[in-house]
Design a protein around this nucleic acid. Structure first.
Lengths: 102, 102
DNA sequence: TCCATAAATCGAAATATCTCGATATACCAA
DNA sequence: TTGGTATATCGAGATATTTCGATTTATGGA
């Protein structure tokens, strides 16, 4: 749990928004044919919703991944990103522990 | 609760450290004579512990104050800073709410 | 093999943050 | 009123982040 890297990743409104979008797969277009079983979302879908360049979104997803907020799964030419709920909870616990007095 | 501003304020190791130091008044030298009843800590004490310039610490405390993490109380020529526990808890709740899925 | 598509990486310009020393402001004491 | 001390603000250089378009890499299909 690298709190430094995690807070940096969160220190950007669009990255936080992406994390929120990923809470619900239905925020994005339906899964590509043959990938209906995957919970993750491909970079192109995120890019389309965020309206930022492909390279920027790829970079953002990399930062979120390094921070532990998302997991990436490569299937063919697509990379599917989804939230890492366990790590997100661990981050919240760590921030709480560092910030709270008691 | 401006989560943007708060996360920015936290996105710095020394500012987070100051927030931790302020959990316990005894992390700093004893109160100045005549101010024993105050829980806050003056800028000079924080500066001495942080080993950064006076202007930097003044700036940092201003950012932490704008973010709602600390309260400032002026007494004579001194400004005493102390944690705002209520706002800190509100921030944690807000981050949890934004970040957590359920 | 060759081409098309998805994603990652590179290089760079614009903007923001960090941090300082110098200066300004506020306040106290003589 | 004058001088001293504490803090805030200003201006600037160094560094980091943001975001892009161009390029590279990986993969799958004709």
């Amino acid at each position: 749990m690298d709190i430094e890297r995690s807070i940096s990743a969160l220190n950007n409104p669009m990255r936080r928004r992406i994390l929120e979008w990923l809470k619900d797969r239905s925020n994005f277009p339906p899964a590509l044919p043959g990938h209906e079983d995957l919970e993750g979302v491909c970079v192109a879908y995120i890019q389309e919703k965020a309206k930022l360049s492909q390279s920027t979104i790829s970079n953002y997803m990399g930062l979120l991944k390094q921070a532990g907020f998302v997991k990436a799964e490569r299937h063919g030419q697509w990379t599917f990103y989804r939230r890492d709920e366990e790590n997100i909870q661990a981050f919240l616990a760590a921030v709480k522990d560092e910030l709270l007095k008691t």
